Amino acid sequence: MAIRDLINVLPEPLRQRALTHPSVADPYDSNGRLEFLGDSVLNSRVAEMVFHSYPELLEGDLTRIRAHLVRKSFLATVGRSEGLEEDIESSVINDSVIADTVEAIIGAAYLIDKDLVYKTVDQIFNPAEVDTDELRDWKTLLQETLQAEGLRPTYRVKAKQGPPHRPHFISAVAVDSREVGSGEGGSIKESEQSAARAALEILGVRPVPRSAVEVHVGA
């Protein structure tokens, strides 16, 4: 299943409307309304799949998985992989426009063949392919764990490496003035999440693979 399978079931002028951005046409002749519908259909269907795929997770983690699956950057990747930029009518072609068009196509096809839309969404936005550990909010989990002991974590950036357009950060987390873990990432936020994940492993809160983080106990 592919997004083009959805385009193929669209009659004119619905097909044209789904592929026309509001920047080049009257709002009622462009895909804004269809994007609204497609966004709702996509989020609802993916939410249902995530709910059934992860019965052990609570709403916070479920929300993060759904958001990860329907993020604009992934929608744009899906659209570009099928060459949709060649079909879109817009004053500018970028990831945002492509992502919006994918949602508009989903919305338009939903009006014609709901079952085909569900089958396509189920295949492209598969929750089973998500690495849930990478989406966990490790900083919140660490903070909640330490609060029960009357403690709180503190973070600091140990190093910033790489060129300005692609920085790489190393952050450390300390508990009661003692460093308990460090982590790396492409942003301060990512490196702090990795550091918190490392600290949780040290504290024995949850076994965590060491592949993405550096773990140590320092003075």
Rank of each mutant, 00 (worst) to 15 (best):
M1E: 13
A2R: 15
I3E: 08
R4E: 11
L10G: 09
R15A: 00
R15M: 04
A18T: 06
A18P: 00
L19I: 14
T20R: 03
H21E: 03
S23F: 08
S23T: 06
D26N: 12
P27R: 01
N31R: 03
G32V: 11
R33W: 09
R33S: 12
L34N: 14
F36I: 11
L37Y: 07
D39Q: 12
V41R: 01
N43Y: 12
V46A: 07
A47R: 01
E48Q: 12
E59H: 09
R66P: 04
A67N: 14
H68E: 10
K72C: 03
K72R: 09
A76L: 08
V78K: 00
R80G: 08
S81T: 13
S81Q: 06
E82Q: 02
D87I: 13
D87L: 12
E89N: 08
N94Q: 12
D95S: 15
S96Y: 13
S96P: 05
V97Y: 00
A99F: 06
D100M: 05
T101H: 05
I105K: 02
L116N: 07
Y118L: 14
K119R: 15
T120R: 01
V121I: 15
V121L: 09
D122S: 12
Q123G: 14
F125C: 04
F125S: 10
P127C: 03
P127W: 01
P127F: 08
P127S: 05
P127K: 02
A128T: 15
E129M: 15
T132M: 01
L135A: 01
W138F: 03
L141V: 00
L142Q: 02
T145E: 10
E149L: 05
E149P: 04
L151S: 10
R152T: 13
R152L: 14
P153N: 00
R156G: 01
V157F: 04
K160F: 02
Q161Y: 12
P167N: 04
F169T: 00
A172L: 08
A174I: 10
A174Y: 09
V175A: 07
D176F: 13
D176P: 05
E179I: 15
V180L: 12
G183K: 00
G185P: 04
G186K: 15
G186C: 08
S187H: 05
I188A: 08
I188V: 14
K189D: 05
K189C: 07
E190Y: 09
R197H: 00
R197S: 10
A199R: 00
G204E: 11
V205E: 06
P209F: 15
A212Q: 09
V215D: 00
V217L: 14
